[in-house]
Design a protein around this nucleic acid. Structure first.
Lengths: 330, 330
DNA sequence: GTGAAAGCGCTAACAA
DNA sequence: TTGTTAGCGCTTTCAC
């Protein structure tokens, strides 16, 4: 292995000078710089980052915690984070937590061990206060799905407003019996989306019925199962608002299995605009969050925090968009 | 920050002893071990991995190169890799290459820089000989989609056989006009799958028609576009074998847009068994690769290689399965 | 503009 | 079983 010492020796300078050249410091004469660069190139020298990391006590690695990457919602966010990271010389470590505290804890460990410089969490259930355990602050950003309880900066959209808009869309199509397939409301985003739904019903004088409001786990099967329940009601809903596309996909599957037509018999709206939402039959009406931008912003915010730990980071709310497709307007 | 020195001092032992305790070496008396562990706990000591990494010249990080994670095919593989890695104390860095050589090169750099110990590539297009550039060997494994040209160990399935089985299934349903939506055949897996398709046609005396064989890019839009072309033929195919589910999803979309029924008018088979293949309408007949196991095996093989660079790693072919669903047997 | 030297936190060879 | 010590490759302070 060729080290900085060897380069220094061959170039007839000190290691300090070589280090200056590597790190683009200006305090090097053009002549010396050229000489060193020539040797580095000839020897195919590659700085050993482990040495640098120990010395600078920084790893230039950031952890991205996701419950699972099987929800395609995360894909573009990841891409946004990665691009933002690369721009600043950081790399990302993908960590799937299955929303289990033990796994989050294990990953958080990497920060204490200096193996990573910061964390972006895409998991709404992350219990940061428990993870941080009162210790000094580590750089953390919540992305998309956040908890206001935690004093951790986040980038997200206004979920209440977005859910209101989606519900209003269904109402304006003439629907009066609108169901909500929601998920665990201790997630702030879920509770906000429900608030938006309820507000819309209220504003248009539609009674909110308990039996139309379900809370299920966030996956395809539970979307299906939830819909099955709704279809068993005497007064079936004519529209369903799912707080996640993956739930909507399950609901649609179940509706079609029951022989109903979408949107004629039952209209469906989702939330997230995952890629499959426009590939499926029917295509899915949904709320598009600016996923790439959210990821990119989260990355930017985190790195800012890593570089300047004192600085207070502001929360960020980005714009969303209602995308109307066949599942509500065949 | 609390270091090994401080722990040693407080426990009244040497740093060597503390190191031995940390690394579970046996050459420590129970009494000493207890004493040290007590201090570590009290002080909430966390070993600094940067120090260890520099000393051992190993990062315990492995790179997983994917063209993009927007193909859900990769999800379970990643999970398999991660689990295998965690078991051995490794973590994974997810690297999206967009199949661009420059990005692969950039990630490969991390290995030369000692920031990562090895690579698992899920990208069939990776040009390893160019990356390696004649230099000494680095630990690399190809997973699922490999190139035999490169002298790099791989774990995969027998693509020819699997494609044969899928094609045979269509033939046995009575189809005579079977199209193939394939992708760039300089990918070995694509060329193998085509071979399987052709072999099946041959074995059952069905002529292989040029106009039924398309090569497109591996995404939804190109699946759609490919299908559109096929639908414009005078003699439309009655069945389509797509070498990837994502292409099949596009094809199905286009078939339904044209007002045709699946599978009555046109049957569709895919390849990969991505999650959406059973969520969609109709559900998709496909080849299931043992994705999790492939990932896990790849992880295991890579770590074995990292730990013992001399050892020759054997290629591995795993079993696959034809999963018959509505898109061929409504 | 350049060099000498200290030291980041850890492991491991060697000595005791 | 335990301690002493060198040193992994790098950055950075302080002199010159």
């Amino acid at each position: 292995m060729i080290t900085i010492q060897k380069v220094a020796e061959l170039a007839g300078v000190s290691v300090a000078t070589v280090s200056r050249v590597i790190n683009q410091k200006k305090a090097v004469s053009a002549k010396t710089r050229e000489k060193v660069e020539k040797v580095m190139k000839e020897m195919q020298y590659e700085p050993n980052m482990l040495g640098r990391n120990l010395r600078t006590s920084q790893s230039n690695l950031i952890i991205v915690m996701v419950p699972t990457i099987s929800n395609p919602f995360y894909v573009k966010i990841m891409k946004g984070i990665e691009d933002a990271a690369l721009k600043e010389g950081f790399h990302i470590m993908l960590c799937m937590t299955d929303s289990q505290y033990e796994r989050e804890e294990a990953y958080f460990h990497l920060i204490r061990q200096k193996l990573a410089d910061g964390i972006i969490s895409l998991d709404p259930g992350t219990n940061f206060s428990k993870l941080l355990n009162g210790s000094k602050k580590y750089p953390i950003i919540q992305c998309c799905e956040y908890s206001e309880l935690e004093d951790v900066p986040y980038v997200a959209i206004d979920n209440k407003e977005a859910a209101y808009k989606a519900s209003k869309h269904l109402i304006q199509l003439g629907h009066k019996r609108i169901a909500l397939i929601n998920t665990d409301e201790h997630y702030i985003y879920a509770s906000h989306r429900k608030q938006g739904y309820l507000q819309a019903l209220k504003d248009y004088q539609i009674p909110a019925l308990e039996e139309y409001m379900l809370n299920v786990e966030l996956n395809f099967e539970h979307g299906q199962r939830g819909m099955r329940k709704l279809l068993q009601l005497k007064e079936k809903p004519t529209a369903v608002f799912c707080v996640s596309d993956i739930l909507a996909v399950g609901a649609i599957k179940e509706i079609m299995r029951g022989g109903y037509k979408i949107p004629q018999d039952i209209a469906v709206a989702g939330f997230d605009n995952i890629e499959f939402s426009y590939m499926m039959n029917p295509t899915l009406t949904t709320i598009a969050q600016p996923m790439y931008e959210m990821g990119a912003e989260a990355g930017r915010m985190l790195i800012q925090q890593i570089k300047n730990k004192e600085e207070k980071i502001e929360n960020l709310l980005l714009d969303y968009e209602l995308i109307i497709r066949e599942s509500t307007m065949g």
